[in-house]
């Protein structure tokens, strides 16, 4: 065809075709989404520390393994209480003149999603130990260690944040491990990652592809306490229930766990967190964050009371339900 024998015509037509399609499927939707969406009313802008921490997060390429998106599918429920909406990302703008916007949605989930990590794992102590070497707290982890975010000091100052690293991971180094400002900022950023509640009246997108076999369909059996423990408790209290000395208390032989007289406190800790013992880090209100049902709590308690040589009384979801209602009320009135 004569038309195609003219290089100017041929390449102009091809380019126009491509450019028009580009504008239709990329540029216009991008501009629309940029202009139409505003941050949610409850969203807080990053603090100065968290913003610096985000820069550390970006510089070290954490997005290679950690996504920050809760998809509207049932399997993503464990990463947040609701699917992500455009407004969640609306407040994120260009990082600097040299760097583009970092929504950090990611495309691979070699590690857990971090959308709601600030709620799920708010403990600074845990995060610092985990950053120094993830295998201290999660044995099977393949995450890189970040010892260069810490320094070793013989005599830390009053303001220094000392990280309790087990001797095995000190590699013969003497002194105390002290978090640098980079490490503290990074943790501040992680702590700031919380899903914001949608304002009243805004419809919440549904989770699709619901799992057909729900745990509650088998009456009498209930949820798997061991799996719940692995998913929610093990990273601090460890698989052997011994915790981490100086950071997380042991559950093995614990009075709170074993003595039935402490059941109310026990449920209270699971649902509302705990920070009564200065020698250990604070515990997050994990039960409330993860929306535990009385079946879940009973399963966890029964698992913990029957593992690692513990020998406590079995509980039923019914009695837990009563206590849960009570401690919820107590937490609300406090």
């Amino acid at each position: 065809m004569k038309f195609f024998d003219n290089h100017k015509m041929l390449f102009t037509v091809a380019t126009l075709f491509f450019v028009v399609l580009t504008i239709l499927v990329a540029i216009i939707p991008a501009v629309n989404n940029q202009n139409r969406n505003r941050p949610l009313p409850g969203a807080e802008p990053l603090s100065a520390e968290a913003a610096k921490g985000k820069a550390v997060f970006i510089a070290n390429g954490c997005v290679a393994c950690h996504t920050q998106q809760v998809r509207n599918v049932d399997m993503d429920k464990i990463w947040g209480s609701r699917p992500g909406v455009p407004a969640d990302y609306a407040g994120i703008t260009r990082t600097s003149i040299w760097q583009n916007t970092a929504t950090l949605m990611g495309t691979e989930r070699t590690g857990p999603d971090l959308t709601d990590i600030g709620n799920r794992q708010p403990s600074r102590d845990w995060n610092l130990v985990h950053l120094y070497n993830p295998r201290i707290v999660v044995e099977a982890s393949v995450m890189p260690a970040y010892p260069w975010l810490f320094t070793i000091k013989d005599t830390p100052d009053e303001n220094d944040v000392v990280v309790n690293v087990p001797p095995d991971y000190m590699k013969g180094k003497k002194g105390k491990v002290v978090a640098t400002s980079d490490a503290l900022n990074l943790v501040a950023y992680l702590q700031s990652l919380k899903q914001v509640q949608l304002p009243d009246g805004m419809p919440e997108p549904a989770f699709l592809y619901k799992r057909e076999i729900e745990q509650s369909t088998t009456p009498g059996k209930g949820p798997d306490g061991a799996a719940l423990y692995i998913a929610n408790c093990q990273s601090c209290h460890q698989a052997n229930g011994e915790g981490l000395p100086g950071a997380f208390p042991p559950l093995k032989g614990s009075k709170v766990v074993n003595d039935d007289a402490n059941l109310e406190l026990y449920v209270d800790i699971i649902m509302n967190g705990y920070d009564a013992r200065p020698e250990y880090g604070a515990m997050a209100p994990i039960g409330t964050i993860m929306n535990f049902s009385e079946q879940d709590v009973a399963a966890i308690i029964n698992h913990e009371r029957s593992s690692w040589g513990n020998n406590g009384k079995k509980v039923t979801p019914e009695e837990i339900k009563k206590i849960m209602d009570f401690v919820k009320l107590k937490a609300a009135t406090q």
């Binding site: 380019t15 491509f18 989404n33 990302y89 609306a90 260009r94």
Partner: peptide, 27 residues
């Protein structure tokens, strides 16, 4: 030749800052 032209277009779309805020970046 089309590949070279298109790639220049793609790079411009990806690096120009005018449509990169919020979800724009993801799209």
């Amino acid at each position: 030749v089309s590949a070279v032209i298109f790639t220049i277009v793609i790079a411009l779309a990806a690096y120009l800052p005018y449509w990169q805020n919020g979800l724009g970046e993801t799209i």
